[in-house]
């Protein structure tokens, strides 16, 4: 059996779920540097689905694709430690300021370079924007079907994949011919932990940029073990049209950002004593707030 070729799209995101007080600068803007950078949670769900297919269908390969600054290579390493086969980092200053449309353009070019593939899988959405747009937009640009909110891949048979989807108020099972793009819902199983064997094997996996900052003996090691190479793709590597990238390729513009300041309203502060609770409840009942 030849297995399937799967591309997993993953994003490194600031952990917006744990925004502490130091995450805001004195001038009220977000201090991204103070937020830990993590593997977008639903992309991990997607990676797990891909790895399960790899377990089930021998010969299947899982390739990670991410876009971001140099440090986003961490995402590729994290994926390799859990069982992915290789990874590509799309990185170039010219991508800065890209909205979802410009981002999906860059990712679709990279995915086309990896053709032929059977599946592209990614999380439903990333926690820094919660837009859920990049997956469907990549699918449209490659002109393949999309199946969103996947919770379980039931089977692949005769070139068709059967997927259970999690909808707002229910579930749906669909069958779709490959290739296609699947976005995975957070209700799908969590990703497996790092595997000790892969951790050792890929400990020194690095991008070319990272390698150049390394020692001589490391470069020698890489010649011996080409699988340690995390490949980087720039705008030129993707033969991308720059008018579709970065700020110029982004139809949405941020007009104004304002730091959240809670509207000051005098709250009546109460303790939890019997008397205070009784008075409050009495007032709520009298004012028909309850009852």
């Amino acid at each position: 059996m030849k297995g399937y070729k799967i591309i997993v799209l993953a994003k490194q995101v600031p952990d917006t779920r744990n925004v502490g007080k130091d995450a805001m600068k004195a001038n009220g803007t977000v201090n991204r540097a103070a937020l830990p950078a993590i593997f977008n949670p639903e992309d991990l769900n997607a990676l797990e689905q891909a790895l399960r297919l790899k377990d089930r269908y021998p010969g299947t390969t899982v390739t990670l694709l991410t876009m971001g600054p140099g440090r986003a290579a961490d995402i590729i390493r994290e994926g390799l430690f859990r069982g992915a086969d290789d990874g590509y980092l799309i990185t170039d200053r010219k991508f800065a300021g890209s909205d979802t449309l410009a981002t999906s353009y860059a990712i679709s070019l990279a995915a086309k370079k990896l053709m032929p593939f059977d599946l592209i899988m990614c999380g439903r959405q990333a926690i820094d924007g919660d837009t859920a747009q990049v997956g469907p937009q990549v699918a449209e640009k490659i002109d393949i079907p999309q199946i969103t909110y996947a919770e379980e891949i039931e089977k692949i048979e005769k070139g068709k994949i059967t997927i259970k989807r999690r909808l707002e108020r229910g579930v749906e099972t669909v069958e779709c011919p490959m290739p296609l793009l699947i976005t995975v819902h957070g209700s799908a199983p969590d990703c497996r932990a790092r595997n000790a064997k892969y951790l050792l094997r890929y400990k020194h996996a690095k991008t070319w940029t990272e390698m150049q900052q390394d020692t001589e003996d490391y470069l020698w090691l890489r010649e011996d073990r080409p699988y340690l190479d995390i490949r980087e793709w720039s705008v030129d590597d993707l033969s991308a049209d720059e008018t579709f990238l970065g700020l110029s390729g982004s139809p949405t513009k941020v007009k104004k950002v304002f730091n959240v300041v809670f509207t000051a309203k005098e709250a009546k502060v109460l303790g939890d004593t019997d008397a205070e609770m009784d008075d409050l409840m009495k007032e709520l009942i009298e004012n028909h707030n309850i009852g």
């Binding site: 509207t263 309203k265 709250a267 109460l270 303790g271 009942i285 009852g291």
Partner: peptide, 29 residues
């Protein structure tokens, strides 16, 4: 921060506060 938009901010533990609310309401309606 929720206290800043609240009409009433009860500073306490829900394990203490909620049973008191339930008890008062049951008794007085």
């Amino acid at each position: 921060p929720i206290n800043q938009i609240a009409d009433y901010a009860i500073i306490g533990d829900i394990g203490t506060v909620l049973p008191k609310m339930i008890k008062y309401y049951k008794k007085n309606t």
